[in-house]
């Protein structure tokens, strides 16, 4: 990176540090921070969408839809989320390969499960063995994203359903009295009002989501935890930059990163809540009204 980095073994302390922190693998660490943020940025809206569908299903008049929604929402309560993170990508991967195998290789006569092997034809592999590395990375990331959206969608469905129930019943009755159809009263009255009730739950959900992101490491994605382990381990003479076991310092850094992330999120949510409370007939709105200007 810097011009003076040619021979690290003779550098004084601070220059050594500057060179050390700008090696290629350290840039991979910094990029992995972006991977975490990207997952958060994609998983949050997806989970919210799943949650919205889930909440609608739970409230639906159709018994089948209601049953599916209820099972989906209650599924994640009794079971640790990490089981889903391990199970869902594994299952989807095999499911997709199974389907592709059925479509792409119809004349294959051997069974797919042979003992403990899961054998599909070469053309059905997902991604293909010939695909470049980035396809493998994107596929792995997409599987992780689906797992996150599924689990946090169920949490969000719970929150949104609660928020929809919390909107005062009289509001809906008034809408009906004005002759609105159920769809209209949902869109015009329920939907705009539910957010203030949903926000505490959703902000909490965001916090849980943030703190679940290191589990990406378990899914084989090179995230912050992966690089902290990789870079922190003892480096002996084979490496340009030798150092003893520094993993504890790297994890201290990761810890600081997550603490900052949750702290900043908390500040932002406090602001949004103050905004949403403005003029609402809730105790929060009342407190804002009474507060000295």
């Amino acid at each position: 990176m810097f011009s003076f980095c040619a021979d690290p073994s003779v550098l004084p302390d601070w220059q050594w540090m500057a060179c050390y922190l700008t090696t290629g693998s350290h840039f991979a660490l910094y990029r992995s921070v972006l991977v975490v943020l990207l997952l958060l940025a994609l998983a949050a809206p997806l989970a919210l969408g799943m949650g919205f569908l889930g909440a609608l299903a739970v409230r639906s008049g159709n018994p089948l839809l209601k049953g599916i929604g209820t099972i989906y929402v209650s599924m994640v309560r009794g079971v640790p989320d990490i089981i889903f993170f391990l199970f869902v990508p594994f299952a989807i991967d095999q499911g997709v390969e199974y389907l592709r195998h059925k479509i792409l290789c119809p004349d294959w006569d051997q069974p797919i499960r042979q003992g403990n092997d899961f054998i599909v034809c070469q053309a059905a592999k997902m991604p293909l063995a010939t695909d470049p590395a980035w396809v493998h990375n994107v596929w792995g990331f997409a599987l992780a994203l689906i797992a996150f959206a599924l689990v946090f969608g169920a949490f969000a469905a719970n929150t949104l359903n609660g928020a929809m129930n919390a909107v005062p019943r009289t509001q809906i009755e008034t809408a009906e009295a004005y002759g609105m159809t159920p769809g209209q009263s949902f869109r015009r009255v329920l939907l705009p009002q539910m957010w203030v009730y949903a926000l505490p739950g959703l902000s909490n959900l965001w916090m849980i989501l943030t703190k679940a992101t290191p589990l990406l490491f378990l899914l084989g994605i090179q995230d912050v935890v992966f690089w902290a382990r990789e870079l922190g381990g003892q480096k002996t003479g084979h490496y340009a930059y030798t150092h003893p076991d520094w993993r504890v310092w790297y994890f201290l850094g990761v810890l600081a990163f997550y603490l900052t992330l949750t702290w900043v999120s908390q500040k932002i949510f406090d602001r949004i809540m103050a905004r949403l409370n403005h003029g609402q007939a809730t105790s929060g709105g009342e407190a804002l009204r009474k507060a000295p200007a």
Binding site: F217, V225, A228, V248, V254, L255, Y258
Partner: peptide
């Protein structure tokens, strides 16, 4: 409370383990 609620349990495990190893 902030330290333990604000950071992921997963990372706490790693951090404490590496500290104990030292």
């Amino acid at each position: 409370v902030f330290l333990f609620r604000g950071s992921p349990l997963f990372v706490q495990f790693f951090f404490v383990y590496e500290a104990l190893v030292l």
